[in-house]
Computed example of a mutant assay.
Amino acid sequence: MNRQRTLRRWGLALAAVLTLICSAFLVSPASADAFDDCASGRLCLYSASGGAGDRRDFALGNNPEAYDGGWDDRALSAMNNTTHWACFYTAGAYGGTVKAVQPGASVEYPAATGSSHKLAPSSAHCYTGYERCPDNRVCTFTEPNGRGTMTVHLPTPDPVTKNYGNSYGTAAAPASVVNRTLKHACFYPQADFTGTWTEGTGGTTRYGAYVVLRGDSTTVPAPFKGTFRSHELVQSTQECQ
Rank of each mutant, 00 (worst) to 15 (best):
K118T: 02
H184K: 00
G208M: 00
K99H: 12
P121Q: 04
L14E: 02
A93N: 15
S230M: 03
L60T: 14
T151N: 09
G41P: 00
S31R: 14
R214L: 06
T194N: 09
A222M: 11
D54K: 13
C240D: 06
G11C: 06
A30S: 13
G208V: 03
L26N: 02
T97M: 10
L182C: 06
S217C: 07
G61P: 08
P155I: 00
E232W: 10
V177E: 10
L12E: 05
P110N: 14
G96V: 12
L233K: 02
F187R: 00
D72Y: 05
L14V: 04
S106E: 10
T83P: 01
R206T: 15
G202W: 04
R9V: 14
H125C: 04
T237F: 08
G96P: 09
K118A: 07
N2A: 15
F35M: 01
W10H: 07
S23P: 00
A34T: 07
R137T: 11
A171H: 13
L7A: 07
W85E: 08
Q241P: 15
S236E: 09
G104L: 06
N179C: 07
A172G: 13
S77V: 03
Y67N: 02
G208Y: 01
T151Y: 11
T194K: 10
S167Y: 05
N179G: 06
Y67F: 15
L76Y: 09
C22E: 13
P121W: 02
R55S: 14
T149C: 03
V138P: 01
G208H: 05
D158G: 01
A86H: 07
T198C: 09
C87R: 05
G114Q: 15
A112Y: 04
P64E: 12
R206H: 14
S217T: 10
R137E: 04
D33C: 01
V152L: 08
D192K: 04
P29W: 01
